[in-house]
Amino acid sequence: MRDETRGASVSASQGPKVRFERERGVYSISLTRDVAHMVVSIIGEGTRSERIMQVFHTLANAQVPIFLVKLHRTAVSFALVAADLTRAESVMKMAGMSMRTRSDLAIVAVIAASMRAVSGVMVDISDALYAAGAHLYGTGDSHDSVLCLIEEERADAAVQQLCLVFHLDRKVVRERNLTEAAR
């Protein structure tokens, strides 16, 4: 919310104590349910780049948004909204591609200020997911987050372990729904 006192007279009195900067290290966790994962083989005719391009074009033409995209030597993997999986599978099959999919997944994201300047987050995440019995299907990282694609049924346990490892209160956990966000 906008601070209504902004631009007030210079003699404005001081308000309550303000927190200026974000905490160092991990300060939040988000959980996104209803995520699917697809691994598409790029072995076949044409160059590797052409095959990758074909995967991206096929999905783009079918209006399927993808994320957590990773390039492997013989495959491309990515996540997608679970509701889009059937359509994605169908267009990929029509394009003659072979794939493996999984739909009952969730993304647990660990949020930190300047993540790429913080060392040791990956091992803590890895230990927490191991303790939660969660299998990692994919990862992604950005300047402020590490995203882990895990089984949805292990998501609550994973969040609990991550809160323990990073000394976070359960109330800093945000739940997101990709299908609703996409609308």
Binding site: M53, H57, L59, A60, V64, P65, V69, A182
Partner: peptide, 8 residues
């Protein structure tokens, strides 16, 4: 993430 085709 909600607009397909950017990666392509």
């Amino acid at each position: 993430r909600h607009s397909p085709g950017i990666m392509a």
